[in-house]
């Protein structure tokens, strides 16, 4: 039981970085950034390849930088070449497939055997016992959250928030929206890349298809967290919601995995249904209210 909780907490922390990235792109900038799936694998590929060559720390750094570059490409397509935002993400994502293969030396997966990762290094310190993986990802998650919270109240952060909030006022406030959109997307994808990098070294492997559905899972946990914490009331709450939502999602996942209430193959479908329902909830609620009133008043 403890082991299940430990796994859920660890995975919740590490994948909260994707939720954090989506918070920046989807909530703050109001852009559905579909670079996420490919960007996650890019981080993973760079990190694991570098660790395989004996440079685990450099691997994490490369994952962050690689993610940022992917974000830049999407932003460039969108702001400089006029490609609609969703399409820009899909185009980058498609291109990334080849880049990711390249990063893994043209093979579909890379495994680490005896090479050390940042996780094994922390394990060898012997301080955290069996919780060493959790310790590493918890530190990364919390630091990232603090960093984002700080960043969003700096001048650049405020400008990025305003870009997503009211495009009309932004260019009237001497802010270049092209620049703020690019900065926001780069930042978001840095976190996605970091997440991929950490997951890769944790699992000691990178796989070309590891990113499928990451964006939906990230959104699901963001929305679960927002619902539980009433997270849209402030930035701090919303950031906390990324972590809380992801841990909750991982616990649900673990329960399904253990109890076999549902066949495990159904999980992606379940996730998709949860996300669709969560995003549709306000509309469904409004429609129901109207229908109810109509029924009452025609009686």
């Amino acid at each position: 039981m403890l082991h299940i909780a430990q796994t859920a907490l660890t995975l919740g922390c590490v994948y909260s970085l994707v939720a954090l990235a989506l918070f920046v792109s989807y909530r703050v900038l109001d852009i559905a950034d579909l670079t996420t799936d490919g960007c996650f694998v890019l981080g993973m590929a760079l990190s694991v390849s570098a660790a395989a060559a004996g440079h685990p720390f450099l691997g994490i750094l490369l994952a962050v930088i690689g993610g940022g570059c992917a974000g830049f490409v999407t932003a460039f397509l969108q702001t400089r070449l006029g490609v609609p935002s969703i399409l820009a993400g899909i185009v980058t994502n498609t291109g990334l497939y080849t880049v990711n293969l390249m990063a893994m030396g043209w093979s579909a997966n890379v495994s680490l055997l005896k090479q050390s990762t940042i996780f094994t290094m922390v394990r060898d310190l012997g301080i955290f016992g069996t919780w060493y993986q959790f310790a590493v990802v918890f530190v990364f998650a919390v630091c990232s959250m603090i960093l984002i919270r700080w960043f969003l109240s700096t001048r650049l952060g405020l400008s990025i928030r305003a870009t997503g909030d009211n495009m009309d006022m932004v260019s009237a406030s001497s802010i270049n929206p092209k620049f703020t959109i690019a900065a926001g997307l780069i930042l978001a994808n840095c976190f996605t890349g970091l997440c991929g990098g950490l997951v890769g070294q944790m699992q000691k492997s990178a796989d070309i298809n590891a990113g499928t559905g990451i964006v939906v899972i990230g959104l699901a946990s963001l929305i679960i967290g927002e619902t539980v914490l009433n997270g849209r009331r402030s930035i701090t709450r919303n950031i906390a919601a990324c972590l809380a939502g992801n841990i909750i999602y991982r616990f649900i996942y673990a329960v399904i995995l253990q109890t076999r209430i549902l066949p495990i193959e159904c999980l992606k479908l379940m996730t998709a249904v949860i996300v669709a329902l969560a995003i549709a909830a306000p509309t469904i609620r409004a429609n129901l209210a109207v229908a109810q009133r109509q029924r009452r008043e025609t009686d």
Partner: peptide, 17 residues
């Protein structure tokens, strides 16, 4: 002319940029 989900102070800070 204003960003609705940001506070009065944050809006002014943007203008003051």
């Amino acid at each position: 002319g204003t960003a609705p989900h940001m506070t009065i102070e944050e809006n002014l800070a943007l203008a003051y940029l």
